[in-house]
Design a protein around this nucleic acid. Structure first.
Lengths: 235, 235
DNA sequence: ATTTCCGTTATGTGCAGACATAAAGAAAAT
DNA sequence: ATTTTCTTTATGTCTGCACATAACGGAAAT
């Protein structure tokens, strides 16, 4: 009974996963090395390498040079969340997108924002607030600070026709980003513009981005109550 | 002025990213094909391919056969969240882990749970509730339903010493998982066991897993107010 | 016994070359 | 004009081979 030749990295991956789910290879156990697997599957080592590398990236396997590859004991599965512009998020739900600027001012951000942007000193920034609508109903609020030091050209853009969300993505590249998800009671600002009662529980996504030159922007997106962030995990 | 030979896939990736940040290659614009880049960088096409493939996976580039590769116009950046057992989450924060079972019953789950587990018919399941403590203080609540059809052996495990969270990971493999993040006001159950006042805003992570045989488990983890889920995005 | 050095081993990566495959666009047939 | 077919092109993947690199473990020196 010879294996029916597994020769694509996908099928190698499938077979490896099957053996893990099978418990042929139990959590914590070492699996054969790449050369042996390549021989068994009658394929190149490169192919096995790619299959295993991806599984290691997704946290199912743990690999170390010389020691070999083992099945992760407590797999840290990586849930992937697609972060995209709010317009696309709304359009993907089949709704009509609407946008309204609330205000645009130059101001000194609160400490929390300065801290999140990793700045030692507070400095004047552009503060833009806007609401994103789905079929005319408030879908999410955008509360954004833009560094005028890193992005001076933002001062002259009015953000009436196009949201800062999209304008920045199209015009200002970034190197590094962080993302943080949390829940808080609705602030007065959120109560007003999301049209929700006091004490409603709101899901927030905070995102900060940087360029070589320094911080680009810090934004909080506050969603309508009941909003879910959904991800399907790999493997 | 010849380029000083870029010959690792990492350095190719860096150079490509530099050109994107540079705006040498603007959002939406097409970039040279792999063969030409390989020639320019004096490396193999395989190397360029790997560099570009990873950038496409992370959403910075968009690739299509025959059409070529272009810089994404609205990059859907993928934020990766590490989902691991609560004990590790607590220990990683440098706190002492504690665990207490609240109750373990056999019951019919509410519709929402049956639906999330993609079952047409409600069926009896094991319902396990527990609290995870960090330095003796409630850190998160676990409210879990386990399919007795898929995991019959769960009926006889007592979950007093080891949480269902860990027991399942070590003993029951899964194929597919979904993850959903949402915010709600604290339920009476959460008020009691997380020791928080009424109307507190609670961050929930819901997770369902499946095996070939059927659904394995559906769990809601409710975090202490102020909890954040943090991710750093790639690139 | 302890430290230092070195060989072995498994993964990590690079390369050239080949063929597979999707898809755009041109050419041919209707 | 519209549909069908074919050619071309860029990405996707597999292969064998080579060398790089981390790290375990034993041998040698202290």
């Amino acid at each position: 009974m010879t294996t029916p030749a597994i020769n694509s990295w996908q099928s190698v991956q499938d077979e490896v996963l099957r053996r893990i789910h099978n418990r042929t290879w139990k959590p914590g156990a070492q699996i054969p090395n790449e050369t042996d697997l390549a021989k068994e599957f009658k394929c190149g080592r490169t192919t096995v390498n790619r299959a295993l590398r991806e599984l290691a990236e997704s946290g199912i396997l743990e690999r170390k040079r010389k020691s070999g590859t083992r099945v992760a004991l407590h797999p840290v599965s990586r849930a992937v969340i697609a972060v995209q512009i709010v317009r696309r998020e709304i359009e993907d739900r089949g709704a009509n997108y609407g946008y309204a600027l609330i205000d645009k001012t130059v101001d000194t951000p609160p400490h929390a924002v300065t801290f999140a942007m990793e700045l030692a000193q507070a400095e004047e920034m552009l503060h833009v607030r806007a609401v994103h609508l789905a079929d005319g109903v408030p879908y999410a609020l955008e509360d954004r600070w833009i560094s005028l030091r890193t992005v001076p050209q933002a001062r002259d853009f009015d953000f009436v026709r196009q949201s800062a969300n999209e304008w920045l993505l199209e015009n200002v590249p970034y190197n590094r980003a962080t993302l943080s998800i949390l829940a808080t009671p609705a602030s007065p600002f959120e109560q007003e513009y999301l049209a929700v009662p006091e004490q409603t529980s709101i899901l927030h996504v905070e995102r900060a981005t940087w360029q070589d030159l320094g911080p680009v922007t810090f934004v909080t997106i506050s969603y309508q109550p009941g909003h879910r962030i959904i991800s399907s995990t790999t493997s």
